[in-house]
């Protein structure tokens, strides 16, 4: 299934770095999110846009992951030639990633 079925997201920008949050609607889906949505998977998804580093931060109490994509904004909002210079569209784009169906057992 697509990530969109279990999570929502928002993108923000600082200079040439984008951050994209991914937040589950239902806390029961968080273990699945944490297991499948790795930094590598996100880097692969956005390979057209950045060759830079992708970092992942976990916020289990909010049921959220925060991805930081360096060099993803064609120089950043002040000088980028891109139509969406802020990278606002990256938020919905991440929800297109496919993840396996079915919830994980919650960690003990």
């Amino acid at each position: 299934m697509r990530l969109r079925e279990i999570a929502h997201s928002r993108a923000g920008d600082k200079g040439d770095t984008s951050n994209i949050s991914v937040i589950v609607y239902d806390m029961a889906d968080y273990p699945c999110l944490e297991r499948w949505l790795t930094a590598d998977r996100v880097r692969e998804h956005f390979a057209d846009l950045t060759k830079g580093e992708v970092l992942r931060y976990e916020l289990p109490k909010l049921g959220a992951l925060n991805f930081v994509l360096r060099g993803a904004l064609a120089g950043g909002v002040t000088r980028s030639l891109a139509l969406d210079a802020h990278g606002k569209c990256l938020g919905p784009m991440i929800l297109d990633i496919e993840i396996p169906e079915g919830r994980e057992e919650a960690p003990a």
Binding site: G12, T17, N19, S21, L55, Y57, A64, V68
Partner: peptide, 8 residues
């Protein structure tokens, strides 16, 4: 969503 907006 707002808590994580523009946070690294």
């Amino acid at each position: 969503e707002q808590l994580l907006y523009e946070i690294h």
